[in-house]
Amino acid sequence: MKSTTTKEAKAKSISYAKWGYIFILPFFLVYAVFTFYPQILTIYYSFFKYFRDGLTWIGPEFIGFDNYKALLTPTAEGTIDILKYFGNTVIMWVMGAVPQFVIALALAVFFTSTRLNIKGQSIMKTVIYMPNLIMASAFSMLFFTLFSTVGPINSLFVSMGIIDKAFDFFFCTISMRTLVALLNFLMWFGNTTILLMAGIQSIDESLFESARLDGASGLRVFFNITMPLLKPIFIYTFITSMIGGLQMFDVPNILSNRTGQPNRTSETMVMYLNNYLGVSKNFGMAGAISVVLFILTAVLSVIVFKTIDRDKD
């Protein structure tokens, strides 16, 4: 009798935890090899002089914080270039992200509303998601052609009498940044809509019903039920969009013909980094820029997280 109980106890205490670890192991292996290790290397090389001159490698030679000093030393005009490019990136991201989230939220609410019950949803969802399927570079080339001085948009504006001479959209800070924001908005609002819809659909439908029975208006339902319950998903999409936005590269790079024109006001952090990685493969400076970008992104993410999530009980 006694022996059986110990056996049972033993059988009960068999731990399945190791399987859990085994199942998550592949992810951690892949993460360690393809993400963690390169990240550490990036940080490591940011303290080195390490680039190629012609076909000869120079370095790696340890130089401490010299790369960071070079990045953060103000230029003759008194600006710190890397902060200027960070500012450009944030401005262009915000210009695209604000309409992106407003419209995505509105669409997500409309599409999930049982009261509206919109027909042909699946087609619409496909259509708004479409731009995201096209490569950013192809999409940028399309806009580059559309808005060029000999492109259809200029011909249209001239023939409508809005402007009397072709306008070069890519040589004006406002129009350039607006175009970058517009492209990013077009490419990403569909994706955001789908994510937010999934979030709204996971909210218990009875809450919406009871609110409606109590006579709550649509706006009231949105602010008092949808938004509070959608918050975790909303924060997730917002922060991922921000991280993606801070790494903005292909659209402004193509629209500005790699120069960040005009006057480098459309030069983003990653375009700046990419310049260093060109012919000279300057891993030292590129590493330092990556680390600065990493720190700035982390700080911004924490700020956003704390701001949106502050009234958590």
């Binding site: 012919v279 000279s280 400076m285």
Partner: peptide, 14 residues
């Protein structure tokens, strides 16, 4: 010209 110099500096550290 300043922007051009910056561009060259980024491309060729030496």
């Amino acid at each position: 010209l300043e922007n051009f110099r910056k561009y060259i500096k980024e491309k060729f550290p030496n």
